[in-house]
Write a protein that binds this DNA or RNA. Structure first.
Lengths: 164, 164
DNA sequence: GCAGTGTCGGTGACACGACATCAATGATGA
DNA sequence: TCATCATTGATGTCGTGTCACCGACACTGC
């Protein structure tokens, strides 16, 4: 047929693309639910665990830096951090040299929780390990990376995992 | 090392799995933002468009049926539908034979909007068409389907697209 | 110094997503 | 028939994601 590079597409093609969109959506939702289940006993949500994770990895960060590292949230994650501060898991101290910024770091209590967080992520990892071989996981990652080229989230991920 | 099949995994492996989780998350977020941008002029959100889509595809459905077909939302999407009814895009009539159920269908106004919805989905499709070849898209779909085996979302998708 | 520009963090508004609970109704079986 | 159980849909609550907006502050060039 006279199908060209990036034009409309047949009905079947549209359908396949819609399925693909839904598959991505579904994978995210299922993963999030799984993670939420694992984290619930610790009183944490996936988003909160994300924040704790980057702080555990990178040490002290400003709010904007955290916002750029985590995939979630376009703006700055002020409110999620608020909850963590209230629960004494994260310390927030105003910057002295640049007085706009806020420096975030884990408290001792927050560091203690990291073990639980790691264990929860492990549960999700197991599911993926069982479903896909190492090579398939690599293929999946490569394709998704390709889809995300040129997006902010893509940048965030390659900054966090790339060339690592 | 005495590393076995589906046990803990090395540090590098854990890192790779975390990246994979984030890639899925990022793909979903970026897609959703893209779709939201396209739908905003029409005053629709991606979730709302989802509901309109299934109703356009399948005709009249009950709330529970819609809930099972769409990937989103674990319970029943009462509230999203509420908004659509208020905006006169969806008709909601109580069931007569089973008086618990509620029958949903598109209004003429809702059907008119479908063109816009289709066009918005198209925009997202284009992005995927440009990033991946047909074969790569197929691979991606296959792998994601595998990850979703045994999950509710997986069921929903194969019910909607499977054996089609 | 100073005006214009951009960045940082916070907040209000709105809609979702997930969970728990509830009343109404239907289905089942003693 | 009647008690029990399951399903449907609605609702309250909480946290999140997104956008728009704001004030505070830093930086740049003049």
């Amino acid at each position: 047929m006279s199908r060209r590079k990036a034009t409309a597409g047949s009905d079947a093609e549209t359908r396949a693309l819609a399925e693909l969109r839904h598959l991505v959506l579904a994978a995210q939702r299922e993963g999030n639910r799984w993670l939420a289940d694992e984290l619930r006993p610790a009183g944490l949500t996936p988003s909160q665990a994300e924040i704790l994770s980057v702080l555990a990895e990178q040490g002290e960060l400003t709010l904007a830096e955290v916002g750029r590292l985590i995939v979630c949230e376009t703006g700055s994650p002020s409110r999620v951090v608020d909850l963590l501060v209230k629960r004494n898991l994260v310390r927030r101290e105003p910057g002295t040299v640049d007085r706009r910024v806020v420096h975030l770091s884990l408290t001792a209590q927050g560091r203690d929780l990291m073990e639980t967080v790691t264990k929860a992520e492990h549960a999700l990892n197991m599911a993926m390990l069982q479903a896909l071989s190492a090579q398939e996981r690599n293929t999946l990652a490569t394709l998704l990376r390709r889809v995300l080229v040129g997006t902010g989230s893509g940048e965030a991920i390659s900054k966090r995992y790339g060339l690592g």
